[in-house]
Nucleic acid binder design. Structure first.
Lengths: 202, 202
DNA sequence: GTCTATAGCTGGATAGAC
DNA sequence: GTCTATCCAGCTATAGAC
């Protein structure tokens, strides 16, 4: 009875780290056990199988991706503030979770059904319709020029997420140190917001 | 002597398909053999090991990613045309190679040294400096407003590549069919170009 | 060159002692 | 609950016949 809750949490933390870095196929139960400072048998004792353990980690990660969007879409800030909030929150979140994009993108790609079911399961799926309504409303009011809402949303999340997915490549190409990388991403918060708002000027 | 050159090419084509979809860790030599219509032993006869075969496929894919950029960066078109050309070529290329982004991103992430060595090996590494010079020159001429060139480049490639990396998620969220997806991406060529040029207006 | 058979190893999962 | 030992499936790689 010594570990129990504690061991459980340690396993989740270790699994998160390993799965995020190596993906489902690349991760080894032994890696996770080592990371958690226990042995393989315990993993099965608590979480039955590799797949079950993975599912927990993946769902948590997928929810994380959605949550950032949906929280903001549900609020009713003015259009420009909403854009700024989406970008600020995404980039902040990704600075804290650098492996998230590649992990989620890769596993979705390997098994698309996973994300479909997670999205349908509602709870915190982002309300895309609400976003579209807001864009259309801002257009009617002549606050922004005409643009297809889905394409705008793609532009926003692309500019937020992609640099993190391509980080090793970007650091190689640009020769940026880890410190410079962080500064570059911090700069992006204001820069991307301004970039988008300028592009939308009527 | 029957197959020879032909068999070799068949193996590469099959390996490309399987590795692109499943990645290094997820792919099985048996999958590749099945796809090529031969048996496992042949793979080793021609390419020695799984790692060697993978390296060939990965290098080809990485070069592809770089080539799109470097060809345009080497030409000396006017600034606005260069932007349009980068976007057109990237999106066209990705419509033809939908698995490319996730594959390259994921494998770079698993083993960053791979891309570093590929980039250093020159040949067709994109000339980032040339891009930066062009942006600075356009700024001096007051053709565009002030922006850090690297950030601009990130914005451009992000908007081109990310949607393809996130395709299953986007189709789920938006409910787009495969046909609608293709139309959406075709639309993006003009849309992203206009979006960027508007954001850069002085 | 191409195939079948199999060696040799890795890794997920379980049995059973404590 | 936790550990050690072990089973067994699946995989890469090779040996050897044709």
């Amino acid at each position: 009875m010594s570990g129990e809750k504690n061991t459980e949490a340690q396993i989740i933390a270790a699994a998160k780290k390993i799965f995020m870095q190596k993906g489902l196929a690349g991760a080894r139960m032994q890696d996770i056990a080592d990371e958690a400072g226990i042995n393989k048998a315990m993993l099965h004792y608590y979480y039955r199988s590799k797949d079950k353990l993975f599912e927990i980690i993946f769902n948590e990660a997928a929810d994380n991706v959605f949550r950032v969007l949906s929280a903001i879409l549900q609020s009713d800030m003015p259009f420009r503030e909403m854009i700024a909030a989406i970008i600020d929150n995404y980039i902040d979140n990704l600075i804290k979770n650098p492996y998230l994009p590649v992990f989620v993108l890769n596993e979705i790609h390997q098994n698309p059904e996973r994300i479909v079911s997670r999205f349908t399961k509602s709870g915190n799926s982002p309300d895309i319709q609400a976003f579209m309504d807001k864009v259309n409303k801002a257009q009617k009011k002549k606050q922004i020029r005409s643009i297809q809402p889905l394409q705008l949303l793609l532009n926003i999340v692309s500019m937020c997420i992609f640099p993190f997915a391509a980080r090793p490549l970007i650091q190689t190409v640009s020769g940026a140190s880890d410190q410079q990388w962080k500064e570059l991403m911090e700069e992006r918060k204001a820069l991307v917001t301004e970039f988008i708002l300028r592009a939308l000027e009527p």
